[in-house]
Simulated assay, not measured.
Amino acid sequence: MRAVLSLVLLLLLALPAAAQVPRGLGDSDPVDFKGKPPSRYPVHGIDVARFQPQVDWTQARKAGIDFAFIKATEGGDFLDPMFKSHWRGAGRARILRGAYHFFYFCRPAADQARWFIRNVPKTRGMLPPVLDMEWNPFSPTCTKRPHGSVVRREAQIFLDMIERHYGQRPILYTTPEFYRQTDIGKLKNTEFWVRSTAKTPDRAYPKQSWHFWQYSSTGIVPGIEGDVDLNAFGGSKRQWKRWVAARQNQ
């Protein structure tokens, strides 16, 4: 019996820390973030698109989801087919929601901003819009990787147009490779949402301030079938309330 208990203890110690994600949520492929788990942050959310066709938003909120970023548009002519349903569902469940745009490097930024504005309603209480900028090597129509100066100029055009329309400065989402290759962190007056599913943001984005951390693409959330992206707000609950009060659409 003692030998069996010892073996069980060794197996438990070999597992990634159980507190990598908050209680109520899970991860099908957890990562050990070396003593700095996402669970140390009290505010968590998800981002969704057409790949999550069925979401029980009320159940997700009860499990601990505080916010959701919902894919709205891509390029200058694609509207995510689940956007309207997700937008309504999150709103009915009283989950704070924002919409994001996936940037397409073969279309002028101004065209893309106008497309986003055409499809995303200016809604009281909405979180700031998000510009998702990352390389897309799997695109069937555009795998261009413009120089960083071009990327930053296009981003500025999009951010400025969206801010004028919604009265909120958009958040910018990015990935480690894109961040390094384009110097997108040089943009002024911009809040960042960073993806880092293998390292903590301080290691993946040295010296870069951030507001949101996408820490898993294999999250398990009650009310959602299959894996979903998990995110944390980089502050306390009090800081979250202050940020929301300052950044919500009035």
Rank of each mutant, 00 (worst) to 15 (best):
N119A: 03
C142P: 11
F105W: 15
R145I: 05
D202C: 07
P201G: 04
L230T: 03
S6K: 11
A19S: 15
L12P: 03
H44P: 00
F233A: 08
L96Q: 13
F51Y: 14
R242H: 04
A68C: 08
I65P: 00
Y215I: 09
R180H: 04
F105R: 14
I220N: 12
G235D: 02
I171T: 06
P137F: 07
V194I: 09
T218V: 14
G45E: 01
L10M: 03
K36Q: 13
L12R: 04
R40I: 01
A18H: 12
Q248P: 00
P146A: 06
G98V: 03
A90R: 01
W213R: 10
P201Y: 07
F103P: 01
W57K: 07
F116R: 10
I95F: 07
A99N: 03
G75H: 06
V48A: 02
T141N: 07
A18I: 08
Y166S: 01
R23D: 03
T143R: 15
R114V: 03
D202V: 12
Q112D: 06
L12T: 05
A232G: 06
A232M: 04
L25Q: 12
V228Q: 08
P53G: 03
W57P: 03
I171V: 15
P137G: 07
E163D: 09
I46C: 15
K207G: 14
R40M: 08
G26V: 03
Y41M: 14
A109T: 11
V55C: 10
L96P: 04
Q20C: 13
L7F: 02
G76A: 09
E134K: 04
P137E: 06
K207S: 14
W87L: 01
P222G: 12
R180S: 07
G26T: 00
